[in-house]
Design a protein around this nucleic acid. Structure first.
Lengths: 345, 345
DNA sequence: ATGAAAGCGCTAACAA
DNA sequence: TTGTTAGCGCTTTCAT
């Protein structure tokens, strides 16, 4: 009415102005309603909502981002391996992010190299995200980059400097310790450890938990074996360990390595759990149905992601406030059939 | 220099205007360089790039999206279950999308219900994506929604109407057929089938492949069993099947169900593969290390995603052109230890 | 409680 | 080959 322009012949998508006109209010009032801002009469709110509904109005996020400087989206740097752990974490993050009304941008990296991480971060920063989650068990090295949004590291300590860094653990240390103690409690004189790749932080964390459990009982600490998280690497380790009769208990840093390990052991004539006990790490439910069912510790992926996102959003939305305290995730040991007392007992 | 404004005390992020000024060209020329458009002298290009580098310039994607109407991002609707298949597909999609210079937005749905799908699509549409991938093995029902960007369905037929729908298969029919034929070739008189949930498209596809193989050999078609993809549901099915001595071969529609099935069978006193042969579906490498190692068919996730994204990008960038032909992914049967000739032979 | 005007940083259409 | 002029659709002041 007021402007000389008329809506084209039923073509392009409705804008907030169309909603405003239909509701008989200003564009700003529409904006207020859509953003749940105060100082809008119930009447106005109702009419705006009705008009939006009627028009099939869809807010343009790009325009909002440009005008407000915030995108209401958070980016995640994930590992391009389809493992149970990685995938569970991503699902948990997505859910927590969406529950908070944010959108998710994902970039994968083939590995945790500082170089790849830097590339992933750069791409996220360009897209414009309000915060970043680095769920990659980053390897050592520095990522030289001007990151001006809060960054959450899950399951690893901050690997580079950003405006604001946060951390949320998955309790790896405690879980590794619990796994090792379970074996020790069964009567094994010591526990061997099949770890992940050397440079990964996740590897170190678990090694330390295992080591702490051993030390607390005064048990001898055998040399660490390194796999690459795959079942194949666990299998190779199993073949190697089988000939050593002193090995009666092994804690593997991943379920899949544990499965491979058991296979290698059995193929070499060692029974599991009669001769050798094995504990895994992750908690993939499918391994309750293999023979023998795998004893393992469950990583609290959902808890860690919702807790982490909570912290991240706090840092985004109330930058100057104290961070809410981090709740430690529960330690969960799942005892199944792959562990038993040592043969001599 | 020319304008009265001076850069603030080293604060806000550089814009294209800053780059233009430093390079001594116009903003539009900067834009041309950044978008790899023609009609820019090498000299200008070089200087723009140098200036951008020097300033640490980062293109604002929100502004670009607003001005151009395109976001250079594609959205994916994925299933919120951290299975091997889902995760592999997502990794493949992410890679293909990034290789093409697009960004990825992910929304999960707890299930394949039309309702959930509609919500996921709506959220993607609001964020502004140039195309959408529905990687959910969608269930029946209609999704009433105005989707005006191309939509790619992977592993399922179009489940709702959009401006432009595309499909890329994962060869499920052929894979199911190959799995069934393998069992028949071994000498089994017929093959039972443990399928997924009834309403899923992925379930039907596999049932049809299985049925086709049976029909081609004139084999009797036993009633279909339905699980929910989980190992637990496979286990339950195994317990039920064990008492029927006529069952000597089972094709399970998922690796995890197969693992549960084998466990249920063995627990009931049926040996695998001596008494009953089992074939899985997916190709998760870890199951090469369980006892017995699982015979399975491998879903070509990487091939399907790169092929699918290729089609989708074509539809986005050259809407009026003929679609390039779809390459059929290869069928891959992996024979391991869970299959053998039937006991009587 | 509401509205008017002025941009956010970029690309599109046109002109030179 | 390059630059100029207008917006893209929203949120921000700052009035009212």
């Amino acid at each position: 009415m007021t402007t000389g322009l008329e809506r084209g012949a039923g073509s392009s998508a409705p804008r907030s102005e169309d909603v405003a006109r239909l509701a008989g209010v200003s564009r700003k009032t529409v904006s207020r309603v859509l953003n749940n801002e105060p100082y809008v009469s119930d009447e106005s709110r109702r009419r705006v909502l009705a008009a939006a509904e009627e028009l099939g109005y869809r807010l343009n996020h790009a325009a909002r981002a440009l005008a407000s400087g915030r995108t209401r989206s958070i980016g995640v740097v994930a590992l391009a391996t389809a493992g149970y752990g990685t995938a569970s974490l991503l699902v948990g993050i997505e859910q927590a992010v969406r529950d908070a009304g944010y959108a998710l941008r994902v970039v994968n990296t083939p590995d945790g190299d500082p170089q790849s991480i830097a590339g992933a971060l750069e791409s996220l920063l360009e897209q414009g995200v309000d915060g970043i989650v680095v769920s990659v068990p980053i390897v050592e090295g520095d990522v030289p980059l001007g990151v001006d949004v809060p960054v959450l590291f899950v399951g690893a300590p901050p690997a580079f400097t950003a405006a604001r860094t946060l951390t949320v653990g998955v309790g790896a240390h405690e879980l590794a310790r619990a796994a090792t103690e379970h074996l020790l409690d069964l009567g094994h004189s010591t526990v061997h450890h099949l770890a992940g790749p050397r440079r990964w932080y996740a590897t170190k964390d678990r090694i330390e938990g295992w080591r702490a459990a051993l030390a607390a009982r005064g048990a001898h600490e055998p040399p660490v074996l390194n796999g690459d998280w795959s079942a194949a690497s666990g299998y190779a380790a199993g073949l190697g360990l089988a000939s050593d009769r002193l090995v009666t208990a092994v804690f593997a840093a991943g379920d899949e390595m544990a499965i491979g390990l058991i296979h290698g052991l059995r193929e070499s004539g060692r029974r599991v759990p009669e001769d050798v006990s094995v504990v895994g790490f992750d908690g993939n439910p499918v391994f309750a149905y293999v023979t023998p069912p795998l004893t393992t510790v469950r990583q609290p992926f959902e808890a860690a992601s919702s807790e982490g996102i909570r912290l991240l959003l706090h840092a985004i939305e109330k930058p100057d406030t104290e961070l809410p305290p981090a709740n430690d995730p529960p330690v969960e040991l799942i005892v199944r059939g792959s562990t038993a007392p040592p043969p001599s007992l």
